[in-house]
Write a protein that binds this DNA or RNA. Structure first.
Lengths: 127, 127, 127, 127
DNA sequence: GTGGTCTAGACCACC
DNA sequence: GTGGTCTAGACCACC
């Protein structure tokens, strides 16, 4: 798993870290039971603050991605199944994007097309 | 046009206001040339600070949704056409949602289904 | 002399009025000694507030363009000769435009060219 | 870079600040990639309010002169190339100055002379 | 009454 | 300490 932090980005560092770990999970580079580096180790490796790494780990734990075993490190949890709550959240996020898109003159057809193009591109990159 | 502010929300008030006005535009409750309330008037009506309303108006103007005529009020501008830049941005936002969804166990088929359900629901609400 | 007020403009009405009268002067539609409409008359004709017309007249008088004879109306003053102060002011205004232009990538040659093009166009329109 | 604010001036403080930074850019005292002081630091140094500095920075960002990286400070952006829109604006501003100048008895020849004198003086100050 | 500008002061998230 | 956000209050020009 390769983690890349961009200090210049608008996105807070702890969120970049959280997202990169989630992406590694999606790509299959991390699986259930895998151990993660200690907070201190990762902070040193990435050249960022220890509190920042800790914040990312806490967030990932609260979202069910990993479990923190005190000083003995952290491990990836069993894969998540989509809950009704999450699917509702996803629908709500998609709706926000759609409204914004409409205000820019994107209609339903064009929105669907953009979704399909994105999915096709992602499927291609996957293998 | 009905504007609802939730002071408790994580979303900044000026963004809530901005988004509600864009939504009113999408729903057709606001059209090109329509006048908006003065910042003072709207601030009193919503129980928020005048500067917060002003910030939302300034943002909407910078995004091309309305034009502020100084003391003579503000009016909705002509509708926007989708630019290539915007469509790229939309694709990127959709991709972020998709990656996040995968990490929750949502696969490509389920993602597409959620998009379609959302669009169907929106189309129904529109008339 | 035809005066046109645009209530929608960003420019304050009293300044529009002031500028239109100065332009009429430059075009020769108004000459030394010509009488101007009374404040009330002009306010009614243009459909604007009496105070607004008065403000424009006061400004024109303070700038030496006309003389107000109390209730007996106002007349255009003798033509102005460029004072040293005014030429300094002009040079300062031009300098501001030039600095701004440079920040947009306009160099000295391009600036001069733009001045010449403007002057040529104005000379053409004059006859 | 030396920034000088005149609190007594008619020109709003945030515009003075904006203009001084653009001038520093034109003079080469600021270049692409240079970091600007934090809004708090500059506010204290100039003895003005933090929000006023922030307004200037936001304006400069919206005009493409700098990019604000949230808490990680602000940096000067790549130099701009003159757009057709901007050159039209410049011509329009020059025309306004010319009409005003004519009303003060400045003719075409004198106007051109004033432009040349200003450019010569600026070129001299540049080295 | 209106928007424009400025100040003072406050709380928050990030680091 | 930093920027982001919000509020309260004030003065000004315009109309």
């Amino acid at each position: 798993m390769l983690l890349q932090i961009e200090p210049q980005s608008d996105e807070p560092i702890y969120l970049q870290l959280r997202n990169q770990i989630v992406q590694a999970l999606v790509r299959g580079e991390l699986k259930e039971g895998d151990a993660l580096p200690s907070v201190r180790r990762l902070a040193v490796d990435l050249g960022i603050n220890l509190h920042t790494v800790n914040k990312a780990y806490q967030l990932l734990e609260s979202q069910g991605y990993l479990h923190i075993y005190g000083r003995r490190g952290a491990r990836i949890t069993a894969p998540l199944a989509p809950t009704g709550d999450y699917v509702d959240q996803l629908a709500s996020d998609l709706k926000k994007l759609y409204i914004e898109a409409q205000s820019h003159g994107v209609d339903r057809r064009m929105f669907e097309q953009t979704v399909k193009a994105m999915l096709a591109k992602e499927a291609e990159n996957a293998h």
